[in-house]
Design a protein around this nucleic acid. Structure first.
Length: 422
RNA sequence: GCGGCUAUAGUUUAGUGGUAAAACUCCGGGUUGUGGUCCCGGCAUCGAGAGUUCAAUUCUCUCUAGCCGCCCCA
């Protein structure tokens, strides 16, 4: 006997058994509904991409150590997409002249990253990427942040359940330059800033002194010291005020929000759960005006964000938000008194399906008692036996499993009941 | 890549230096035209390998896997 194969999924990825898949789908269906109301269109692409796509703008370390990259049989280097934005940029650039701007696009699918799995971080996760492409900084940024808030609100979250922390790359850059940093120094400072909340103040001060004489944040605090900083700060605060005026009140300025990515050029934001039990970033996004130009041509401004399934599911659970799943459970279990009745039951089921009934037909030789048990286990609400008696009299006894009640009715009325019920 | 914790039936767990217990699930039967109750029976080379020992599921080591943290974070 050969060694049996393991039944666990590959490290860091999940199986979605029907229950879990129904929940997962419910999560993203809710997002799809909101986006449809806002006129966003769904696109998709292959998870396989040329490796160079990420080498262009993402940092080398990420490509080398945190992607699934391999060489195919034609010696092409291939990467399983770790994020969607480069693919989106590639697609937009490819048809840049024929698309109708502004583009309101979104995509839901899996992303891959090769790293050590731990809480909230897996090697394969699902994400909704939502982008607004074409308009420069301004109204588009307002819409994107409003939409981010609306998606959570449409899950039933209250405004107090989350907070949107906002910053702007130009503001950070101006402050860094005011502090005498440039190029690589700015990059290193942003990385340090990203970690600030996890460090002790002393450790931050020590790390900072290795980079700069004065903390760039001081120039943001006292913007009067540097005109460029003052200008950027004013622009950002105006945006926050606009959002509040338009009904998104849970937005705050947070100078430590940087986003790890090089391609952001404007506003950046992260949405945090306010519940202490789940106090971490749920998702985030920002403006990236120069990414699409990497594929040639004039820059096409863009702003967007992405919501991952793991953190969103945690949020929904933490706040006990209602989420209906399993909408596809059959409504009716069609039992057969004996195996000879199966062909007739299948034919009958098919007439019910044409009327829109979701029907599960028994094809085993189990007794009716066992079939009823089976229906209960599967969570199918209605049961009826279909055999010689039913065919002869054209009537059925429909059993409501939840109450045990049985209703006798003519076969012809059954579709009406299925439509009314469930 | 580094560190901590864990590993017993399909699942969740108990337990012991003398080859294991329970609940639920599943399978078979009591009950061959209608369930959820009840009763009986079945289902574990105690993660893998090595060592200590008369004897290891139990102690030690190595490995593997999972969880958690660090690093990193799209």
């Amino acid at each position: 006997m050969a060694e049996p194969l393991p039944t666990d999924p590959y490290k860091g990825v999940r199986d979605f058994y029907p229950d879990a898949f129904a929940r997962q789908r419910a999560l993203f269906e809710r997002i799809r509904q909101t986006l449809a109301l806002w006129g966003y269109e769904e696109y998709n692409a292959s998870p396989l991409e040329r490796a160079e796509l990420y080498e262009a703008k993402t940092s080398e370390e990420i490509v080398d150590e945190q992607t699934y990259t391999f060489t195919d049989r034609g010696d092409r280097r291939v990467t399983l997409r770790p994020e969607m934005t480069p693919t989106l940029a590639r697609m937009v650039a490819g048809k840049r002249r024929e698309l109708a701007y502004p583009l309101r696009w979104f995509s839901i699918g899996n992303r891959f990253r090769y790293e050590r799995p731990q809480k909230g971080r897996l090697r394969e996760f699902y994400q909704a990427d939502i982008d607004l492409i074409g308009p420069p900084e301004g109204e588009a940024d307002i819409e994107i942040v409003t939409l981010a808030a609306r998606i959570l609100r449409d899950f039933g979250a209250r405004e107090s359940d989350f907070v949107i922390r906002m910053n702007a790359r130009p503001l950070l850059n101006a402050a860094c330059e005011a502090a005498g940093l440039k190029g690589e120094g700015i990059r290193r400072y942003l990385r340090l800033l990203d970690k600030k909340s996890k460090m002790t103040p002393e450790a931050f001060t020590v790390a900072l002194s290795a980079l700069s004489a004065r903390d760039p944040l001081a120039y943001i605090e006292n913007a009067g010291d540097a005109p460029t900083v003052a200008r950027e700060k004013r622009a950002l605060f105006e945006r926050i005020d606009t959002l509040k005026a338009r009904g998104v009140n849970n937005v705050v300025f947070d100078s430590s929000i940087t986003r790890g990515f090089d391609y952001y050029t404007g506003m950046v934001f992260e949405v945090f759960d306010t519940n202490p039990a789940n106090a971490r970033a749920l998702f985030g996004g920002g403006r990236y005006d120069r990414l699409i130009a990497l594929y040639g041509g004039e820059p096409i401004p863009a702003v967007g964000f992405a919501i991952g399934d793991v953190t969103l599911a945690d949020f929904v659970e933490t706040h006990a938000l209602p989420l209906t799943g399993n909408a596809d459970t059959p409504q009716l279990y069609l039992g057969t008194p004996s195996a000879e009745d199966i062909p007739a039951a299948q034919a009958f089921a098919d007439t019910l399906r044409k009327e829109g009934g979701r029907v599960f037909v028994n094809i085993t030789d189990r007794t009716l008692g066992e079939q009823v048990k089976d229906a209960v286990k599967r969570g199918i609400p209605l049961f009826l036996a279909y055999g010689a008696n039913e065919i002869a009299h054209q009537t059925v006894r429909m059993k409501i499993l939840r109450t045990g009640e049985e209703i006798g009715l003519p076969v012809s009325e059954l579709p009406t009941h299925l439509r009314a019920g469930s």
